[in-house]
Design a protein around this nucleic acid. Structure first.
Lengths: 243, 243
DNA sequence: GGAATAGTGTCTGTAAGACAGTATACG
DNA sequence: CGTATACTGTCTTACAGACACTATTCC
């Protein structure tokens, strides 16, 4: 049976329901460590387990809009701060048995956020926090969220290679050293400061100078650093590749 | 309202139905040109328009398995030939108005196939063919399938850069020249024969020699070419980048 | 002053592209 | 034999990584 015949005789009540949810792997950097937004489930199944923020798609809502709404609800943030969060589709997860109650297909999304306030646990969630990814309780994650998180982290590492999205983890103006810290944190490996500096400035459209510098040097000495803002490029040519 | 409360009180009959379909952007190379598998719709909406093969996900079927089944149904191919087809998830398309009848979220997939027989139009489709992508009737495509195809083609071009999946367009044994033809066809640009040859053989795990050569030289002269099969690498290091 | 950091200069190894050249096979 | 093609050699250029160095700022 193909699509049009299926639909021609289709009545939702005749078929097993399929639910569509949107989930969000939201990443941020706090105190030099990569953090992930998680909520603790307050009801079965997986009661007390950590899970990704997410929920059912609403009837007249686009997938990306649904993910943005879920993110807003879980972080308690309004439009302004959320505009600075990068959001993209990650992938869909629809194994028949991934939810014990019914067939649920989840459209997972990936978010890069600047340092945001602590999330406000919504009335139904037991808790909501930014958790360091190094402290992920892999055995206590609900559903297949462990796998979704793994995929999201790998996608994030890969995205930093060929897009300028690392800037989305930072304030609107930043130094090259701060940008390097983002790469080192997400990739989990130290980078050569001098070479990174030259490379970033040589890629067209990655960053553009504001003309200004930081008010002070580093806390343990060093000159003031120049400030940059994100450039206009959407892809990096050439890319910054991991080793 | 969050997920668990929603589900606790959830009855599919109380909510607007959401349908989940799988669609496939299936690519192959025929006579030196990139072709796409399309079906012609035999019923409204978009009757007579070309569309991607696809259909509703079945209750106990994984997303990828659904895409493989749809591909099998539309091409009329059994398991053996289909095993050589690369299939991966492309992305999800869920704009609220993308289907005029109801809310449909489609999980699109991307397939790389070796040269296959002509598809067998299934009883419900008016037609099914491999169509050259240069002849795509952009204004006659059903739903948002034009956009899905664009995304699929760009993904395909990108995948050839950093994966050895170009070999999936070829027979189990192939020459370097045949492999180069795949790149030239998908990227739409000529490549330097000598440099491509050296590059392919220098990337670890891209191809491995069979020890054998072709039976004959080229139709217009030239030595016999050595035969290779796909190597064990799943990613190319370093990558073959487009210019 | 001592130490740490921002930013630049320079050298080296690697890899890609341009080009040329050789051997092999078809007609 | 002429020509097309498979494959290899070599040169040049671009870029990444290692290292060194200077200038600036904090304590």
């Amino acid at each position: 049976m193909n699509e049009q015949d299926f639909l021609a005789g289709y009545d939702p009540r005749d078929y097993p329901a399929v639910a569509v949810t949107v989930d969000v792997v939201a990443l941020t950097i706090r105190e030099g460590a990569l953090h992930l937004l998680l909520i603790r489930r307050g009801a079965p199944p997986y009661e007390g387990h950590w899970a990704l923020p997410g929920g059912f798609i609403r009837p007249d809502e686009d997938l990306l809009a649904g993910a943005r709404r879920e993110l807003a609800e879980e972080t308690g943030l309004g439009g302004e701060r959320l505009d600075r969060v990068h959001l993209e589709q990650l992938g869909s997860y629809g194994a028949p048995d991934r939810d014990p109650r019914m067939r649920v297909v989840s459209i997972a999304h990936l978010a890069f956020a600047p340092d945001l306030p602590d999330p406000v646990a919504d009335t139904d969630a037991a808790d909501a926090i930014w958790l360091p990814v190094t402290a992920l309780p892999n055995r206590q994650l609900a559903f297949d969220h462990g796998r979704i998180i793994d995929d999201g982290l790998e996608r994030a590492r890969s995205k930093l290679e060929y897009t300028p999205l690392a800037t989305r983890f930072l304030a609107p103006e930043f130094t090259v050293t701060e940008l390097r810290a983002v790469y080192e944190t997400v990739w989990g490996e130290p980078l050569h400061a001098g070479n990174f500096h030259r490379k970033v400035l040589s890629v067209p459209g990655f960053v553009e100078s504001t003309g200004a510098s930081t008010e002070r040097g580093g806390p343990r000495g060093g000159p003031r650093a120049r400030l940059y803002r994100p450039g206009t490029a959407r892809l990096l040519h050439p890319a910054l590749l991991r080793s």
